[in-house]
């Protein structure tokens, strides 16, 4: 039995099919990257995994258990924006998950307990390179720093599944490479299963152990919204660090092909 099992999942909004017949088995510890044209349902799929939305049909199980109806701490998330809390400083953002755990009622801590929680996240602050910015608010941080904070905050609950919705989409290329190293290191160290939606095909190939493509099976020119999308490609990728020239070449040409066909598809759309 696989760790994440998606069976015949369909999503319909107001009669318009978004996803149809999505089937997927994912082993624990996989890094699944998800690509597809805009509006093809890849973010919807991520929201299903997060329990932010419910499938209209079909089932999703994680570790053999049906997903609950709301988000839970076993599945962490990082969005492209709004992942950290604007009214809390860097330190306050980091101790928030701990405060929620300790102060069962209101989630507010004071005095000695609060100071001890701040001491607990000190190491984390250093490891994400935000120690110097501990008292700044998110809007005073660069995009990369904000996302480092968001990832660190999500990982404090030690989720078994991490869901990333275009987390690096708004970052500069250089910063984005640093973030790739960070997320790969975290993934290797924690052994968690990652699902990451991205627009960047190269990023999807670089990070993933498995790449899935969401697309519509056929394109109805007269009524594009009449057809839902599903998984059209499911490519196992090499483990990172194993260099095999042939496979690399094949991967790149596949990437180019995909890129090309996705570009074509998106051109077809208004």
């Amino acid at each position: 039995m696989s760790f994440v099992e998606v069976n015949d999942v369909a999503v319909t909004y107001d009669g318009a099919p978004i996803l149809r017949k999505v089937n997927l088995q994912v082993a624990e510890g996989a890094f699944v990257t998800i690509v597809g044209a805009s509006g093809c349902g890849k973010s919807t799929f991520l929201r299903l995994l997060l329990s932010q939305e419910q499938p209209s049909d079909g089932t999703i199980r994680v570790a053999g258990v049906h997903l609950p109806s709301s988000p839970t701490p076993d599945r962490g998330v990082v969005f492209q924006r709004y992942s950290v809390f604007p009214h809390l400083t860097v330190t306050e953002n980091l101790i928030l998950p701990l405060e929620i755990e300790r102060a069962k009622g209101l989630g507010l801590t004071f005095g000695k307990l609060r100071r001890s929680l701040k001491a607990e996240v000190e190491e984390m602050l250093n490891s994400i390179g935000l120690a110097h910015a501990r008292d700044r608010y998110p809007s005073q941080l660069s995009g990369g720093m904000q996302q480092r904070l968001a990832i660190a905050q999500a990982l404090l609950k030690k989720p078994r599944v991490l869901l990333l919705d275009e987390p690096f989409g708004a970052l500069d290329p250089g910063i984005r490479r640093d973030m790739h190293d960070l997320i790969l290191a975290l993934w290797t160290n924690t052994g968690m299963t990652i699902f990451m939606v991205t627009h960047d095909i190269a990023e999807a190939f670089k990070l993933g152990t498995r790449l899935i493509v969401f697309d519509k099976i056929r394109h109805d020119v007269a009524d594009p919204s009449s057809v839902g999308a599903t998984i059209t490609y499911d490519l196992p990728l090499r483990r990172r660090g194993v260099v095999a020239e042939g496979l690399a070449g094949a991967t790149i040409s596949a990437a180019n092909m995909l890129d090309h066909s996705l570009a074509e598809i998106s051109q077809d759309r208004p």
């Binding site: 997060l50 932010q52 709301s70 988000p71 839970t72 701490p73 599945r75 962490g76 998330v77 969005f79 924006r81 709004y82 992942s83 809390f85 604007p86 009214h87 809390l88 928030l96 998950p97 405060e99 929620i100 755990e101 102060a103 009622g105 209101l106 989630g107 507010l108 905050q153 999500a154 404090l156 609950k157 989720p159």
Partner: peptide, 27 residues
């Protein structure tokens, strides 16, 4: 308040009351 923030704090284990106290009211 962006919906993402409610989802995020739920993934950090917060109850509805905690979400009100730590996200809704302060903001």
């Amino acid at each position: 308040i962006p919906r993402e923030q409610f989802v995020k704090i739920a993934t950090l284990g917060a109850s509805t009351v905690q979400c009100v106290c730590r996200v809704v009211l302060p903001q």
